[in-house]
Amino acid sequence: MNGERILKVGIFAYLLIWFIGGFWGMAAVHSGLLDARYLGIDFLKLKEYVYYGLSGAIGGVLYELRIFHEFYHRFNRRWAYWYVMRPFLCGGTAIMIILLFKSGIMLMQVPDSLAAKVGLSFLVGYGFGKVIDKIKALTETLFNGKKQADPNINDPVDKTERIEKL
């Protein structure tokens, strides 16, 4: 076996372990297997967030498996890091997005059920790139005060400037 083929097999095995392990982890949490304290952390209080993180990771891994299959013959070893890190990034982002919705910072009506939040977490993981683009736009708007380029937006300052020019 050449090095690239070994890397492909390793990445595929890694993704399968994450995919199956994510569901196993959710089942373990649901069954109460982790209802204890580990390293000073009470997992019973964090149960919901474990669901969100794992479902986000599952969404990210499902996307990776699709991309891996689609571009298998054009595989480039530069993407190995992306394959390794994406489950972690998607899981963490899913948790933070749920917190942003719960806090009211991001406005979207998400039902208060666990299933709805787990589903949203999965979608965040699957659409990670688009979610990150939206977070970038949100932080630009909130913290930079960057004006929007669209002149049709109902901004009182822009409207006044346009009227004065007439």
Score class of each variant (00 low, 15 high):
residue 45 K to Q: 06
residue 47 K to P: 08
residue 135 I to M: 12
residue 152 N to F: 06
residue 32 G to Y: 02
residue 130 K to F: 09
residue 120 L to Q: 07
residue 39 L to H: 11
residue 104 G to A: 00
residue 148 Q to Y: 01
residue 133 D to F: 04
residue 64 E to S: 15
residue 2 N to E: 14
residue 25 G to H: 03
residue 162 R to E: 15
residue 83 Y to K: 03
residue 78 R to K: 07
residue 117 K to C: 04
residue 54 L to K: 00
residue 27 A to I: 15
residue 150 D to E: 12
residue 77 R to G: 04
residue 92 G to M: 08
residue 159 K to G: 03
residue 19 F to Y: 11
residue 23 F to S: 05
residue 114 L to S: 05
residue 60 G to N: 04
residue 154 N to H: 03
residue 66 R to N: 03
residue 85 M to S: 12
residue 92 G to W: 01
residue 131 V to E: 03
residue 40 G to C: 11
residue 11 I to A: 13
residue 33 L to F: 04
residue 31 S to A: 10
residue 44 L to R: 07
residue 49 Y to M: 11
residue 83 Y to T: 10
residue 14 Y to M: 06
residue 162 R to N: 12
residue 141 T to V: 02
residue 11 I to W: 05
residue 38 Y to P: 15
residue 112 D to L: 04
residue 62 L to P: 09
residue 8 K to C: 04
residue 107 L to Q: 08
residue 99 L to Y: 13
residue 161 E to S: 13
residue 31 S to Q: 14
residue 9 V to Q: 02
residue 5 R to A: 12
residue 50 V to D: 01
residue 59 G to K: 01
residue 68 F to C: 13
residue 29 V to E: 11
residue 63 Y to F: 13
residue 147 K to G: 10
residue 83 Y to R: 10
residue 119 G to L: 01
residue 88 F to A: 09
residue 140 E to G: 06
residue 34 L to A: 08
residue 73 H to P: 11
residue 164 E to A: 09
residue 94 A to E: 03
residue 49 Y to Q: 07
residue 34 L to C: 01
residue 98 I to N: 14
residue 153 I to T: 12
residue 130 K to C: 11
residue 89 L to Y: 11
residue 40 G to D: 08
residue 55 S to M: 14
residue 25 G to C: 02
residue 101 F to D: 05
residue 139 T to R: 01
residue 162 R to F: 09
residue 159 K to D: 13
residue 69 H to A: 12
residue 162 R to Q: 11
residue 64 E to F: 00
residue 127 G to N: 05
residue 8 K to T: 11
residue 30 H to N: 09
